[in-house]
Every structure is written in structure tokens, then in C-alpha cells.
Design a protein around this nucleic acid. Sequence first.
DNA 1: ATTGTAGTTTCACTATTCGGAACCTAAGGG
DNA 2: CCCTTAGGTTCCGAATAGTGAAACTACAAT
Lengths: 269, 269
Amino acid sequence: MQTERKSSGTVGKALSVLDQVASFERPVRFNDILEESPFPKATLYRILQNLVTEGLLTFDREWQTYALGVRLVRLAHSAWTQSSLAPVARPHLTALSEATGETIHLAQLDGPHVLYLDKRDAKRRITMFSEAGKVGPAYCTGVGKAMLAFLPEDELQRILPQQSYHRFTPATICSQQELSSELEQIRQHGFALDREDHEPGIICVAVPVLSRTKQMMGSISITSTSARTSLGKLKKFVPDLQNAASEVATAAEYWRFPDNQRTPEKMEI
Amino acid sequence: MQTERKSSGTVGKALSVLDQVASFERPVRFNDILEESPFPKATLYRILQNLVTEGLLTFDREWQTYALGVRLVRLAHSAWTQSSLAPVARPHLTALSEATGETIHLAQLDGPHVLYLDKRDAKRRITMFSEAGKVGPAYCTGVGKAMLAFLPEDELQRILPQQSYHRFTPATICSQQELSSELEQIRQHGFALDREDHEPGIICVAVPVLSRTKQMMGSISITSTSARTSLGKLKKFVPDLQNAASEVATAAEYWRFPDNQRTPEKMEI
DNA sequence: ATTGTAGTTTCACTATTCGGAACCTAAGGG
DNA sequence: CCCTTAGGTTCCGAATAGTGAAACTACAAT
């Protein structure tokens, strides 16, 4: 589940160490990191020191452990507010959840993975930090497939081989070929289905959020259990979902340039 | 409100640019950044490119703008989960909020600022990503003063001069001297008061979360309005607050080393 | 005393980064 | 149609920062 990025440059190396620390689920000692690090002792040591002085990591002198620093939380707050669909989508997700009584997800792509940015649970109406920020696979979730299907060809070709194609359930799509044809279907229908691909008993419908210029910005899904409902019934919500998605897209574009009605510059190529 | 950090090293420079982009409240063009950047054109350009390839920034080719990347959200999720008090404090905050019917905050220090990590509102029982991650001043908030008071002397001396001492209300503490004596009071009483220091009509009591070794880990507060209650009545909650704080501290320490009862190593010096 | 383990520092070497200047466009003006 | 300006991008020698083997410290166990 570790994102593979070309970690060229000093910043990249630092980031890869940061990711590594993040991948442990609790504070770690120097040696724990060293053991699975590609960097030699001295180099790793210096990188860690840099990260600590930058506030991206904290070092607990008492236990001699490193952990992610809270500075990240502040940056993420800005990221969530300014760069994700989450703030503008918020009311629409709430409305959807109330209208359908089911769980709603908002997701965007982070490299090859799905990153959940918001969630609305019909019962407990609560969005938690601990929900936003979670990652999941793209090739076998409704939100993931909906996004992949509407990605520009070149980006798609870069991302497809990076999927793990792990079989979670008997229904999981486990090859790039199968996925490609599924994506073609999705493109034609305009929505994606999760037929218990990822978790047994969990089904969902998802639609992409597309900008006026057909750029894929994220996706929204309605999730339920096969015990409570069926794919057939879930499909009835597609118009609502599409409606919400297009409203989110409009709101997002309007919000980005509220005081400015100029059209975007012509794209090169 | 920009955190001042010694941005030595390549990573530091990159981070300072990242902070700068974050400080705008919407996507920005190259020149917007350049205008208030200490870096020359070419350097800034390269740094931005690095940040984009690392996924910390996204570049919107359509509008030619930079914005914070969602990768930060993922990292922050780990930070929130693994390094802050938030996950272990969660149930205690809920309990406090239900017992008192008032708003509860959980905060930690991020450099010289207060960083809010969780919030429980008595009415709408909802913790939002948009709340966690917010920053505020330390010298004139309950949570801030409670934390400063229990900071080791050397750290305190580093942080005190970095406060802005801006006068928000007639009751705001506006000098380092006044603050120092207030902190002494707080140390003696064991809790801090916000007497409408920051916002008119808003009052609060706060206590620090202290580890077994008396290290300051964060703080918890109960906030209300002077219209609804008084400082005198809020003080009645101090025992509950202190109780919650010590339970959070214990839970945090237990959680860090669940399978491991060894005592921390002796600190040097 | 001896060996081992975890963490820190040194320093000659090297790869990155720096940034002034030149170079592209595209847009606007005369 | 050429000139100018502004936003953005590329070059390349000089300057800086990063690298990592090895040596060192501190402590614990043998």
C-alpha cells in the first residue's frame, strides 16, 4: 500500500523517509527505521534530524522515538480546505445521505490509490478526521473505478500497472485486462458498481465528479450492504448521485474563482 | 500567523514554499508566489516543480495554478492517528462534553501556536476535519496558556518572544511580563482561565495534559459564553477536566507501548 | 575487561541545488 | 508589423548541501 514515487532529489528522499515512519503505526526508534531503509546509517540519521527540525517529525527524547509531527495536521487542514472537493461537497453529501439513508463517500485519487476525503454515515452523522485521509485500492472500489474510467488515457496507462490486483473476494477484478473492459463499461453507463469487489457484503454505486471541461476531479458513492439492498435498487440513486456530482463540480469551479469570471487559458497541445 | 522556522537545508526551503502556498486561501499562480518569495525566479520554479512531482502540490494546467496536494491529507491522517493525543482522547472528550453540555477542545503546541486537534460541540456532536488543524495564538487562549505554563523553562523562553501579543479584546494579555506572571499563577492553580482574552464573550477553563514524567503533552478546555455562564461556574468543572486529562495521559502512554512495560530510558543531562 | 548494540559525529568526496541571464511565448500598443 | 511587457521556462558554471565509510560514545550484557 506504499505509494511508489520517483524519489529523486533531496526532498523526495526526505519524503520517502517520512512515508516510512508513517507506515509504522506507532512511534519508532532509529533502528526500526534503519532496518528497512535503503539509506546508510549516517544519511538516514541526518535526514531524520532535518525532518525533526522542520517539524514534520517529532522526536521523543524520553523514549527516543520518532513520530509524525503535528505540523502535518496544519498543512493538511489547508490542503483539505483549499485543494480538495471536500469543503464544497459537504452540504451535498449531507443531503444525499439524508435522502438515501445510506453511507456516502467522497474520494479523490492520490497517485494510484483512492483517498477518502469525506464520509457521511446515515446513522451517526459524523465526519471524522480519522475517516478523511484513509486510503484504499482504486481497481476494486466503486469510487476508484469511477475515477479511473474518466482519467485521460496517458494518466490511466501510468496508473493501471501500479494497481496491486490482489483478490479480496471472489468478485474482485484481478487483471489489468478485466479492469480495462470494466472501465469501458463504466464510461458508457456513466457510473461504476462495486459488486462486493473489495469486501464481502458491501456494494456500492459511484459516479465521477467532472468539471465543465470534463476533467475528472473526484468521485462520490453510495454504499450499502447486500443484506439490506441490492445493486438494482442502488442504481435507482444514480440520477441523484449524478445531480450531486454536477452540483459539486459547479460549486468547486465557482469557488475557485469567485471574483473572476474569466475562462481558463487555452491548454497547450 | 506564519510560523517562523529556520529553513536551512533543501527540505526547509521546500517546506517554506509549501507554507507560503498554504497561506494563500486559494490556488495561486507562479507570479503570486514569486512576488512574496525570498527566492529568485529560477529557484522558486524548480522548488515548485519538485513539490509537484512529490505530490505535495498539484498544478492545474488548465488555470496554471498551484494548490496543496492531497498527499498531505494522507500523511496528516497518520500524524493525527499516531502522534497526537486525539485518538486516545476522543472518548474522554465526548464524555466531558456530555457531562458538561459545553464545548470541549483538545489542543497541542505547534511551534509557538496552538493547534486544535479535536473539538466536541455539545449541540451538534460532530468533529470535523475542518476543525482539527486550525491554529490559534497561545498567549491569549485557555489551552495555550495552560500549555505554556507547563513547558520546560528553555522551551518557554524560546517561544515567549515569538508570541504576537496582539490586543484582541480589552482583557488580552499584551506583554511578555504580564504573560509570565499569569503563567506563574496557572502553575500554582493547576488550570488556566480565558477571561475573554481572545474573543469578547468567550470564556474558558483549560488544564494541561501531563505525562507521568510531567512532560506537557497538550491541553483540554471547556469553553462557553459569558452570557450563559460565568468563570466561577466554569471552575467547578476543573476536577472533571483534570480527571479527564490524567486519563488521557495514562491512555496515551499505555497506547504508545501496549506490549511493553519497560520504563523510559534515563534522559541525558 | 570484553563484546555487542544503538546512536552520533567527522570529513573528504560528490551530486544537487542555486540563480543570473538568456530564452520563449502570448498579449497588448503604437 | 514590429516593439514591448509580463508570465513562465531553460541553461549552465559556481556554490552549497548531501553522502556514507569509518570512527567514536554510551551503555548493557557477558
